[in-house]
Write a protein that binds this DNA or RNA. Structure first.
Lengths: 210, 210
DNA sequence: GGCAGACTCCCCCTTAAGAGATGCGATGGT
DNA sequence: ACCATCGCATCTCTTAAGGGGGAGTCTGCC
């Protein structure tokens, strides 16, 4: 019967009800796994983690209210032994790196089959890192991937909204020339042709969200 | 028992296995609905439609190989009576409009609960249009939403890759000045500040994909 | 202390972007 | 057949973007 001390206790966090149901069924069908909770966003995930203390969290990275990355950080803060497997739609490198450095053990795509997912859960519980091959490929492609500074991220976000360099300077209380300087380093780091390209690359690599 | 002639025969199309499982369980649990197939992409959806001839297709709009919109068009071509309910992550207006004009009856967000979804299926089968409130709001906000011409779309796509106006002109075999003209109409239609903003707005409104 | 990296600001210079106005052919309704 | 509309095309002009330096401050690190 489920609920034994040897069972893998799993918390599922995803903002899509149907996805939660599918994951819950898949995990619950395993004889040695039990779903102890379902969270609808990052904040809920943190709260339910406190309440249920699962051994593993299966978490979507893009969620409302509190982002999956923040939830990972908060949960790892509460328990250094918890195993976290991230589930995402796109293989954006920056998020993979951030999730892994924050303590995630696995990183899968939602296109993975349910059997892939339960297999990954077992691997992760066994202490092995699990990366989807597509994610591994993207990581290798942009390995040593330049990481944008917080200032550069602020500038990039404003660029995405159609702000001119002068407007960005006003918003951040810095000179336009300084903005240009930041823009130049952003373009260099991302290998972008211009500010527009920087935004699309930033979106693809998980530095920005729509 | 399921399979009766009065049952609503449903085909599910989504590229995420766990989502398919969740939707399938939810629909299959209804006494008067039966899932007759699960498609993993647009092409698969068209083929399975031919094979199973369901009364309703529950379809994700962003899928590999063949896009959901193309699949809708192809399926409606095969059967003008089929009811199509679209399921999507983001409420991008352009896609809503295109899906509806292509013959979709409903447009829901994936954040909808499974009971919302089965309720929507019933509404759609009853001949009523079903739009998620968020979708309705976005539609109203950009009502009379300017539709980009195919030329403008080509230009916008190239802008997103960081091409200069001259490079775009070379790629499309038109003069740079013409490209600038197209860019200006794009900016006007989308209400964008500059080309970068046009790209982010284009992504949000479903004219572009990452 | 010395060093590296981030942030800040300044100069100059070249080219691309964007605004305004206009011609011109095709499509389509009256 | 006619005129309106729309998509496409082009010219000119002003401003912004982007590249190349250089230089001062502050931080954390070896």
């Amino acid at each position: 019967m489920p609920g034994q001390s040897t069972d893998i206790r799993v918390l599922i966090a995803d903002d899509h009800p149907a996805m939660r149901a599918g994951l819950s069924h898949a995990v619950g069908a395993e004889p040695d796994m039990v779903v102890v909770g379902e969270a609808v966003d990052g904040q809920d995930a943190i709260e339910q983690f406190k309440a249920t203390r699962p051994g593993l969290v299966l978490m979507d990275i893009q969620m409302p209210r509190v982002d999956g990355l923040e939830a990972i950080a908060a949960i790892r803060e509460l328990d250094r032994d918890v195993v976290i497997v991230v589930l995402t739609t796109y293989p954006g490198d920056a998020r993979v790196m951030r999730a892994l450095t924050l303590g995630a053990t696995g990183y899968l795509l939602k296109s993975a089959t349910t059997s892939d997912i339960v297999a990954a859960i077992r691997q992760a519980i066994a202490g092995r890192q699990v990366l989807a091959s597509e994610v591994r490929g993207e990581l290798a492609k942009h390995s040593g991937s330049e990481t944008l500074t917080s200032r550069e991220l602020s500038v990039l976000r404003l660029i995405a909204t159609g702000s001119s360099n002068r407007e960005i300077g006003d918003a951040l209380n810095i000179a336009e020339e300084t903005v240009k300087s930041r823009v130049r380093s952003i373009l260099a780091k991302l290998g972008a042709n211009d500010r527009t390209h920087a935004v699309t690359l930033g979106l693809q690599r998980g530095f920005l969200e729509l």
